[in-house]
Amino acid sequence: MKHKKTYNSLEMNTINGELIIEGPIPTAELASLDFHENLTAFRPAHQQHKALIEIADLPEGRIIIARENNVVVGYVTYVYPDPLERWSQGNMLNLIELGAIEVIPKFRSGGVGKSLLKVSMMDDAMEDYIIITTEYYWHWDLKGTGLDVWGYRKIMEKMMNSAGLEWYATDDPEISSHPANCLMVRIGKRVGPVSIEQFDNLRFMNRWLY
């Protein structure tokens, strides 16, 4: 499967300034940009910048960024599922994971996350993919937002719904370990029934236990 990456962008006016939402961003361009020090949800900012550069360099890797002038203030990543997770076991070339989405506090609550997802889905190549995201409450910034797990889950689910991702049931043990965790999925228009059946088998791998 060819991993086509069609660049798209939009300008966004927020109460805190104008942003450019763009991508998939080429590796060299991402490396040339500054990375905001508050992008620390997953690891220290300089380490996360390096990690995103590595993802952008992967054949399937996609990074959509929000930038204020020359500074990255938000991003969303798409990459093949982690080899240690069940979602990689089918070796499906048309299954990619929305691995991370992060926006600095200054630009939260202004629709930046939705805009990152909107630009992601402007690419027609996304219709060839099953896109998943696995949401775990322990990754959420509950302290920074002041929300409880259900409040955060509601906001996250609404944001993902805006890009066509919907809640899907699964017996994955990690997702099932807490009721706030969830699997969300978008199945592209050109994904065939064989791939959908293969994905369903990944969602429910423990059926033989019941």
Rank of each mutant, 00 (worst) to 15 (best):
L202G: 00
Y137K: 08
E60A: 13
W150P: 10
G17T: 04
A169D: 15
N201K: 14
W138K: 14
N38C: 05
L19C: 03
Y129L: 08
E18R: 15
E11G: 02
M159E: 04
D123K: 01
Q89F: 01
Y210H: 11
V194T: 09
I20M: 15
E68F: 11
V76Q: 06
N69L: 13
N94S: 10
G151V: 01
V194R: 15
Y7S: 07
S109Q: 10
A28V: 10
H3T: 03
T14I: 06
V149N: 06
W140E: 12
I55G: 03
R67Q: 04
D123C: 01
L84V: 10
N13V: 09
R67K: 15
K114F: 03
I64Y: 01
Y152M: 10
N38A: 12
L98A: 13
T170Y: 08
A163T: 04
F107T: 02
A28K: 13
D57T: 05
I65W: 02
Y80K: 08
N201G: 08
L52E: 13
G144Y: 08
E102I: 05
N94T: 04
R186D: 12
W167R: 00
S9V: 08
V185Y: 03
I20G: 00
R43W: 07
S32N: 03
E127L: 03
P105R: 10
T133A: 06
W150N: 09
A180R: 00
H49R: 14
L39S: 05
W208D: 14
D124F: 03
E37M: 05
R207H: 11
L84P: 00
V73D: 02
K2M: 11
Q89L: 09
E102C: 13
